[in-house]
Structure formats: C-alpha cells, structure tokens
Design a protein around this nucleic acid. Structure first.
Lengths: 206, 206
DNA sequence: GTCTATAAATTGATAGAC
DNA sequence: GTCTATCAATTTATAGAC
C-alpha cells in the first residue's frame, strides 16, 4: 500500500481523536469511539499511535499549540496598539466560537491530578508572554496607555473575557437566557464590541 | 447498628465522592477511589447510593447548589448597590479560592455530550436571574449606574472575572508567572480590588 | 496496512456470610 | 451495616492471518 494512503489513515485517526478527546475528555474517551469516528478498525489506532496515552498526548499538544498560536503571534506586526488589540479580540473570539471545546478540553485536563501528560507538555512548551510584556512597556513609555497597567493582568483579563462565555455556554443558555439559544448567539455576536469597550476603558490614559 | 453510625458512613461516602468527582471528573472517577478516600469497603457505595450515576448526581447537585447559593442570594439585603457588589465579589472570590475545583467540575461535566445527568439537573433547577435583573433596573432608574447597562451582561462579566483566573491556574502559573506560585498567589490576593475597579468603571454614570 | 480473534486488566455491580 | 468473593461487562492492548 502506498505512502499516501498510510498518511491518510494516520491523519484520519488524529482528526477523529481530536474530536472525541476534546468533546469527552481523556477519561471519557474510549478507543472504540475514535475508531468508529474515523471509520477504521480499532487495532489501527495502536498500530499508528501505540497507546491511548500517546494518542492523547498528540491531541493535547495539537490543541494547546493551536490555542497558543492564536494568542501569541498576534502582536507581532507594526499596527497601532489599539488596532492590534481590536484585531486580536475579534480573531480570538471567532476562533473560540468555531472551536468551543478546545479551551474547555485544555483547562479540564490540566486541572486533573492524574494527568501528568498534559501538565508536562505545558511545562516543556516554550510559550511565554515576554513579547506582550515588552509591547505593553513600550506603549506605556509612549504614553498611549495608562501607566499603572500590568501586562500580565491585562492579558489575563482579555483572555478571560473572551474564553469564559464560550466554555460557560451550557450554563449561560439555561440560567441567564432561559434556554433561548438565539438570545445567547445574539449576545455572542455583540461580545466583541463589549470586550473592546471594557478593555479600552481599562487602559485609557486618564 | 445505630442510626447515628449509618448517617456517618453515608456522609463519609458523600464527602469522599465530592472530593474525587470534582478533582477527576465523572469518567475519571472510579468507585474504588471513593471507597479508599472514605476508608470503607467498595460495596458500601452501592449499598447507600445504588450506582455510580446516582452518586454522581448527588455530588453534581450539591456542587451546583453550592455555587448557586454563593451567587444568587447576595443581593437580597438593603445595602447600597455598590456595597453589595463589592461584598459579592469578595465573598465569591474567597469561595472560589477555597473550592477551586467546583467551577471547573460543573463546567466540564456540562460540556460533555454524554452527560445528560448534569444537564438535566440544571434545567430542573429553579435558578434564574430575575432578582438581579430587577435590582439593576431599579438602580438605573435611581440613576446610580449607567443607563446602557444590561443586567445579564454585567452578571456574566462579574462571574467571568472571578472564575477564570481560578480555573485557569494550571496554565497561568507556568505561562504567565514562569512557574512562580507565589507570584500567582499574590496576583489573586489583589484580584478583588482589580475586579472591583473594572466593574465600577463598567457601570459608572458618565 | 488492515482485519479478526483474543488476551489481560479494570471496573461497576451483586450475592451471600457475618 | 459491613465485609469477602465473584460475576459480567468494558476496555486497552496484542497476536496472527491475509
């Protein structure tokens, strides 16, 4: 059999594994579910990925990498800081709405005591906030944002405001919007402008 | 054997189940773990709670109830709205820091497609935001807060700012604070004042 | 590479002695 | 009420035919 088809099967497995793991979590995922979703035999999962742990590691690594890639390179262009901020929030929110299970999956697995695999992958990643730190410092010197702003706090607040309404959807829809999904969707449609207003108020020079 | 000891065993099981379920999730929890944590025989779990599903339902109900009880009655006194807001944020944050796994547990289980038990318990609960809605409306009429404030959005934003830094701790500590736990703890110590400043800025009449 | 068959271990749940 | 023993089902993983 050709190399091309080998790649296809391996890819099919990984795609199916991404779906099932992110939807059901590591412990809730069974190898049979992944095989069914990929439309192949269960044995092939082991042929390509050896064990459930190794397949999970691949999926978690991908999910965290995708999340990080959406967050960290966004301030690498030369636009005005406020423009960058606005672009980031729009871009990140749209990513989250399209991939609502990824942040929940990452946070949930990291909070489990019996999942060292996930925690170690984070520690061994080279993700950091040095770039964002430097940009904020520069903007403060330029006088475009409030002097008391701390980069770490600002970043956490921005991510907070974007992520939470997505992962809390199953509780917001019934409790806040009386099971009216359209009301929630409409709320999320306006969320970008709301976040931008809040964040701009945070950093505005007084 | 006396009624008193019966209650003690049943309680011991429930306490152990709360710990294990919230830490490891439903699928990640094994009945043996709960028995070990409670210091009793595995069979007793079934004697008192019939099945894993029923025990999970008890724990989820408790967790959601505890969370709701911390959120919703706080605006039922006659204090000034801003004072109530400040008290709520302080109270809720301190609850979250003491019970960091409860919000993650609730959100994680609700986001799983194969967990109808959790979703149904939410739908059948009578939690709603009518009271908070009414209070915000009244404050707008009194002119103490901005006219354009929407109660639903305000509530989501407040909860967002409180909950996220707690559930995202395992990612904030390594990525934002370079594995410096003390820096994170210090950040959380100042979090109350930071949230209050943000929220007051949101609702301030211009 | 892909399948069937099956091993080996785990786990939820029950029976029955005390 | 609490324990030991055990069942039955599930699930990860491997062996071996094609």
């Amino acid at each position: 059999m050709s190399d091309k088809e080998k790649i296809n099967t391996e890819e099919k497995i990984l795609e199916a594994a991404k779906e099932v793991f992110t939807e059901e979590g590591k412990a809730g995922t069974k190898m049979q579910m992944i095989a069914d979703r990929a439309g192949i035999n269960k044995s092939l999962l082991h042929y390509y990925y050896r064990s459930k742990d190794k397949l999970f590691a691949s999926v978690f690594k991908f999910a965290f990498g995708k999340m990080a890639s959406k967050i960290f390179p966004i301030f690498e262009n030369d636009d005005h800081f406020l423009t960058q901020l606005e672009q980031f929030i729009e871009n990140y929110l749209s990513f989250l709405v399209k991939n609502p299970f990824i942040p929940m999956f990452i946070l949930s697995e990291l909070n489990k005591k019996h999942n060292n695999i996930a925690a170690e992958l984070i520690i061994n990643s080279d993700v950091n906030i040095d770039l964002f730190d430097a940009i904020v410092k520069k903007e403060i010197q330029k006088g475009t944002i409030k002097k008391s702003i701390k980069a770490k706090n600002l970043l956490i607040n921005i991510l907070t405001l974007c992520v939470f309404p997505v992962i809390a959807k199953p509780i917001i829809v019934p409790v806040v919007f009386n099971n009216d999904s359209d009301a929630y969707n409409n709320y999320m449609k306006n969320r970008k402008d709301e976040i931008i207003e809040i964040v701009f108020d945070m950093i505005r020079v007084e």
